[in-house]
Design a protein around this nucleic acid. Structure first.
Length: 279
DNA sequence: CTCCAGGTGCTGG
DNA sequence: CCAGCACATGGA
């Protein structure tokens, strides 16, 4: 199976910090566990990605996951014609990025865990949760290979706080407990939430203890595809101070704000940018 | 050992 | 409204 989409680049997506269960297997090839499926992705050529090893979800499913119906090239090209040199560099550097359409519950729990952790630590913590509470499934392309799905809210809601603590989640234990319980009880209907305007969605998400503006933004963008939402983490705050004099304004980017933020995040963390800085 | 991480809640001004 | 601080833990 093959996906074709302008500029799409699997290395960039995997390293972009929006999904935590995409990992490199070898050069140009990554594994991905999402929506209870395991697949392997290979960059066959610029803008061409091969998919193998999954259940029969079909091409349309993964095209949707990687947001191939959205015209990224037009946005990127228009950014490249702008005056903002930093943003131009960032957009050019990350031109193969996509805003994925991830599972809302997984995104919610993942970004609750993300607070005050670096990306490797986030990934490890999520894997521990999946191994303990997810379903064990066999890989379709390998008889000996298996993987663990991300647990459902109903399962996670039954877990005691101490047990979460013992997985190394620290003070986030009660936040995960609260979020899982809220979703499991149907108090937060994730199906319906997606229909809300971004601001109302943010308010609903932030009603959960442990979910502040940053985590809610990430869930809105990566789980509900609210493309105008731009999460502000320590890295973005840093460039806002260092490059934009604290005057970074997301509203001018409209529905591209989330993508602009992603370009900037991906770029500032790169070695390429760090070199330009200290030279 | 130290520093820091895709923050948040709480408290006191 | 904003500033300061505690929070638990692991990766580098």
């Amino acid at each position: 199976m093959e996906i074709i989409s302008d500029n799409i680049n699997i290395d960039q997506i995997a390293e972009s910090g929006q999904c935590f269960r995409m990992n490199q297997i070898e050069k140009n090839t990554y594994s991905l566990i999402a929506f209870e499926d395991y697949i392997e992705l290979t960059q066959l050529a610029p803008g061409r990605i091969g998919i193998s090893g999954g259940e029969e979800k079909g091409k349309n499913f993964w095209e949707e996951y990687f947001d191939c119906g959205y015209d990224y090239r037009t946005i990127t090209d228009s950014l490249l014609k702008g005056e903002d040199e930093f943003l131009k560099s960032a957009a050019d550097f990350g031109s193969g990025l996509r805003i994925l359409k991830q599972d809302p519950f997984e995104t919610l729990i993942s970004f609750i865990i993300s607070q005050n952790k670096n990306i490797p630590a986030i990934k490890n913590a999520i894997e521990r949760i999946c191994e303990r509470y997810g379903k064990k499934k066999q890989c379709k392309n390998n008889e000996e290979g298996y993987y663990f799905t991300f647990p459902e809210a109903e399962v996670l809601a039954e877990v005691k706080r101490d047990e979460l603590r013992s997985l190394g989640l620290g003070y986030r234990d009660e936040y995960i407990e609260a979020a899982s319980a809220t979703v499991a009880k149907g108090k937060l209907n994730l199906e319906k939430l997606g229909e809300l305007e971004w601001k109302e969605l943010m308010d609903e998400l932030m009603s959960i203890k442990g979910v502040g503006k940053k985590v809610a933004s990430c869930v809105a963008l990566f789980g509900f595809h609210k493309m105008n939402v731009a999460p502000e983490d320590v890295w973005i705050k840093r460039i806002n101070e260092e490059i934009y004099g604290g005057k970074l304004n997301w509203e001018i980017y409209g529905n591209a704000a989330g993508l602009v933020q992603q370009y900037m995040f991906y770029y500032v963390r790169s070695e390429a940018y760090q070199k330009t800085k200290y030279k």
